[in-house]
């Protein structure tokens, strides 16, 4: 019994990072309608900066968080307006640019990771921060993972309140439903979509900094994080902040239970099993219609 509770608690805490990871991407795709394949690469960039600041200047990652989040916001805002909006202008509408935007996102991903590769190569980055065991409901979890969960809940809650409870949120959701139609309703699509994209960028950078605290990474691993985030995004429903949170936590708990009570070898298989299940139910329309 205690071990079940323990597996549940640690699973939830470890799921926090998945939730955080997916939250940024789900907002970016859900609202800005851009499948940001460079997500993982931007994440790695934040992680690399946090590591370098920590190793070279002994700057706490929590402090670099304050530096990197606004920086990431600005960069994403710039990327959105200088790259994707320009493409949209050329194509005439969001729908017309879908295939091109994927190509562009590939390019962006290559540019971000390529620039880092040219500087750092495949070098491994790893350091420990906030590796303090914390007692939580009778289980022990590392503080850095707990922080990830807290941030996920905070960002997720913020996104939810913003999207569902405010007029701006209504406007943003209108964009999500119909980017080409929204201007007719007097919504400045580019402005709001850009801000949401950049907000996703903030979450992306936050995930990066947190991941750098407890995970070994190198530049070519960006795509792994994109993939992981996508899996959670699909499970939670694209553009659905709460869905991403729940799916992330479910993933954490699943991994924890499978590793503990079945076999550690099957953790990823279980995760992808859930993923397939999510896609299959989606087909019958539980989430399907809202996500068109």
């Amino acid at each position: 019994m205690t071990s079940i509770l323990d597996a549940l608690v640690t699973g939830l805490v470890y799921g926090g990072i998945y939730a955080l990871l997916a939250l940024g991407l789900t907002l970016q795709y859900g609202v800005a309608r851009i499948l940001n394949l460079a997500y993982g690469d931007f994440l790695i960039a934040a992680a690399v900066f946090a590591t370098l600041l920590y190793q070279r200047f002994q700057l706490s990652p929590l402090v670099s968080l304050l530096l990197l989040l606004p920086a990431s916001f600005l960069i994403h805002l710039l990327v959105y307006h200088l790259v994707f909006v320009q493409l949209e202008r050329r194509r005439g509408s969001w729908r017309a640019m879908e295939a091109s935007s994927i190509l562009l996102a590939f390019g962006l991903s290559f540019v971000v990771s390529g620039a880092m590769l040219a500087i750092f190569g495949g070098k491994l980055f790893s350091y420990s921060y906030l590796l303090v065991p914390v007692q939580l409901l009778g289980s022990v979890v590392p503080a850095n993972r707990l922080l990830a969960l807290v941030l996920a809940l905070a960002f997720g809650g913020f996104a939810y309140l913003l999207l569902v409870r405010t007029r701006i949120g209504t406007a943003i959701r209108a964009i999500a439903v119909d980017p080409d139609g929204a201007p007719l309703a007097g919504i400045d699509v580019r402005r709001w979509a850009g801000l949401t994209f950049a907000f996703g960028g903030i979450i992306c950078a936050a995930s990066g900094v947190l991941i750098s605290m407890f995970q070994t990474f190198n530049v070519p691993m960006g795509v792994t994080f994109t993939l992981k985030a996508l899996v959670v995004v699909i499970m939670g429903g694209v553009g659905n902040a709460v869905g991403a949170l729940v799916a992330g936590l479910i993933l954490g708990v699943t991994e924890s239970f499978v590793a503990r009570f079945i076999s550690p070898g099957l953790t990823l298989a279980a995760v992808y099993g859930l993923f397939v299940l999510a896609v299959l139910t989606m087909r019958t329309g539980i989430f399907g219609r809202a996500l068109r």
């Binding site: 954490g252 550690p264 953790t267």
Partner: peptide, 15 residues
């Protein structure tokens, strides 16, 4: 026990 390539959470195993 084996664990998949890319595992990042070893707490359940070590517990």
């Amino acid at each position: 026990q084996g664990y998949p390539l890319g595992t990042t959470d070893f707490q359940p195993i070590l517990t």
